[in-house]
Amino acid sequence: MIVSLFRRVASPKKAITGAAVAAATTGMLFAAAPAQAAPAAPAAAKAQSIAHKMIPDAAQYKAFSKIVEHESGWNVTATNASSGAYGLVQALPGSKMASAGSDWKTNPATQIKWGLDYMNSRYGSPVAAWNFWQSHGWY
Rank of each mutant, 00 (worst) to 15 (best):
A78D: 05
A19D: 09
L29H: 02
M97V: 12
A100K: 06
S135K: 11
A35F: 02
N75M: 03
D57P: 00
Q90T: 12
A58Q: 14
A15S: 12
M28I: 07
A37D: 01
A15F: 13
T79P: 02
S49P: 01
A129P: 09
P34S: 04
T77S: 12
M119S: 10
S83E: 05
W130D: 10
N131A: 14
R8V: 11
F132M: 00
D117S: 13
V76T: 14
A98N: 06
S65D: 15
V127T: 15
A128I: 02
V21H: 12
V127N: 07
P12Q: 10
T110A: 11
A128P: 06
P108T: 11
T17N: 06
N75D: 12
E71V: 09
A15Y: 13
G84A: 08
S65C: 05
W74H: 08
N75F: 03
T26M: 12
H52S: 14
L5Y: 09
S135M: 06
A85E: 02
G137R: 06
P126C: 01
A51M: 12
K13G: 14
Y123V: 04
S102R: 05
Q90F: 04
L5E: 11
A45D: 15
Q111I: 10
A31I: 06
S11A: 14
T79Q: 05
A35C: 00
T26H: 02
A24S: 13
E71Y: 02
W74E: 07
I67T: 06
S11N: 13
A47N: 08
A33L: 11
S95Q: 12
A10Q: 08
V68H: 01
A43E: 14
A23V: 15
R7S: 13
K66W: 01
G101I: 07
D117A: 11
Y86D: 02
R7A: 14
S135N: 04
A58I: 02
A32V: 01
M119D: 12
G87W: 03
W104C: 08
K113S: 15
I2T: 13
A91E: 07
P93M: 00
A91R: 03
K113Q: 15
H136D: 01
M28A: 13
S83L: 03
Q60L: 01
Y61G: 08
A63D: 05
P39E: 10
S72G: 02
L92V: 05
G115H: 08
V21L: 14
H136Q: 08
A47G: 07
I50V: 15
T77M: 00
N75R: 03
S72E: 01
V127P: 00
F30S: 08
A40M: 10
E69Y: 07
G115R: 10
T26P: 00
F30E: 03
I55A: 06
A109L: 08
A20W: 05
F64H: 09
K14W: 14
P108D: 06
V68N: 04
N107I: 11
G27K: 03
L88T: 07
G115P: 10
A128T: 00
G27S: 02
W74R: 07
F6M: 13
A59D: 15
A23W: 05
G124F: 06
A58S: 15
A51K: 05
I55N: 05
K13P: 00
